[in-house]
């Protein structure tokens, strides 16, 4: 155990080094862009960060952050839970799955922004529309990934379940879900990103509160510092959450596949 530790550590150092270099390159590029274009177009990295910290410290910023977090949280819950349930139902029944899959694929590849006005008409202005739009973005990929995951569960395991006279719910809980988990999780990760995108889109267009609203107000005021600070805040949140989900994803895959067959 202890003998194996040093090489593994050095590998992780090397794996971490390259992304850190890229990160540094991004910051340097940002600084260069600032030198070229000036404060009017793009503020330098350091002032942006200090402005962000200053903004987060302000009392009037927090309600907006809370509003966005609330909308995103609800949308994420709907798309994760709803998507997995829909995927399990469609995947569990062969014909239903065959009927529904092309419809879902078509919906998935549509530019859903186009439908945002429809969502606004259906749900009215405000929180509900944002949640609905975010969930609408996320729920389809989660359902599609779950559907495929369930379909790829080995038939032998299902037969074993039937031999043990499991009920439908037990079958889903004890056989389908564990066998399908790695792929379902890949869907959840994608659903996370798309839900965030949908929620942000919802806030940018016709909204009275939230980070998206602050962004739109900053455009009107030509407040580049705020635009950049919020964009950086959202991106940092998105990237770090995604990295965490990726790490879980990798662990699940390692657990699922026998050694040597890992993806």
């Amino acid at each position: 155990m202890t003998a194996a530790a040093p090489p593994r550590a050095s590998i992780s150092v090397r794996n971490a080094r390259d992304p850190v270099l890229v990160c540094a390159a991004i910051v340097i590029g940002w600084q260069l862009l600032h030198e070229l274009a000036g404060d009017v177009a793009i503020t330098a990295p350091l002032p942006t960060l200090s402005h962000l910290l200053h903004m987060v410290g302000q009392a009037r910023f927090l309600p907006h952050l809370g509003e966005t977090a609330m909308a995103f949280g609800q949308a994420l819950a709907i798309s994760w839970i709803g998507g997995v349930v829909i995927g399990l139902l469609l995947g569990g029944h062969k014909l239903t799955g065959e009927v529904a899959e092309p419809v879902l694929v078509t919906l998935y590849s549509l530019p859903k922004v186009t439908l945002y006005p429809v969502i606004l008409l259906l749900f009215g202005l405000g929180m509900q529309a944002k949640v609905a739009f975010g969930a609408f973005h996320g729920i389809i990929p989660v359902a599609l990934f779950t559907l495929n995951a369930v379909r790829n569960v080995p038939a032998a395991q299902l037969r074993a379940g039937r031999a043990m006279r499991l009920s439908g719910v037990q079958q889903a809980r004890h056989i389908l879900l564990p066998a399908a988990l790695p792929e379902v999780f890949a869907g959840l990760r994608l659903g996370f990103s798309l839900t965030l995108l949908g929620t942000m889109l919802g806030e940018l267009f016709a909204s009275q509160r939230g980070l998206g609203f602050l962004l739109m107000k900053a455009i009107d005021l030509h407040d580049v510092e705020t635009i950049l600070a919020i964009a950086v805040l959202i991106s940092a949140f998105a990237v770090s959450a995604n990295m965490a989900l990726l790490a879980v994803d990798r662990r699940l895959r390692r657990g699922a596949a026998p050694a040597g067959h890992g993806a």
């Binding site: 177009a41 965030l196 962004l215 580049v224 635009i227 964009a231 959202i234 998105a238 990295m243 990726l246």
Partner: peptide, 21 residues
Amino acid sequence: PFLASYYSIPHIAFYPLLIVI
């Protein structure tokens, strides 16, 4: 690693900045 998390960034947040530029 950046490509893998690229689509989690809501790019639309950068649209205001692009308008300014």
